[in-house]
Amino acid sequence: MALNIKQTAVAGTMESSDVMVTVKPAEGQGLVIHLQSNVLTTFGDQIRATVQEVFSDFGIRDAEVFLVDKGAIDCVIRARVQAAICRASGEGFNWKGEDK
C-alpha cells in the first residue's frame, strides 16, 4: 500500500542516541533528505540509505525529510522514520507487516 504524505509530522527527540525526524509533503520533488548528525562522517551514508529504504518500503516517492541525529543506531532511525511517515500520512502502522 502506497501512502501519501499529507501533512508535516515529527517523531523522535533530541536526546543523545535518538534522532528527531520531521517529514513534510513535497509533491513531485522526489525524496529530499536533510541530515544533521554527530556521526555524519562515519555513518552519514548508512543513515541516508536507511531513510531511503524505509520510504521505499512504504512506497513513498515524494517527501522532504529532516533528521537531527544524536547518534541513534539503525533500528532507532528506522522506527522514528516509520512513525513520522505514519503521522504525516494519517495512517496507522501495519504491525503485522513487521513480523514478515
Binding site: V39, T42, F43, D45, I73
Partner: peptide
C-alpha cells in the same frame, strides 16, 4: 553488531 561499521575517516 550494535552500531554497524563506521566509514573510515
Amino acid at each position: 553488531s550494535i552500531v554497524g561499521t563506521p566509514k573510515p575517516i
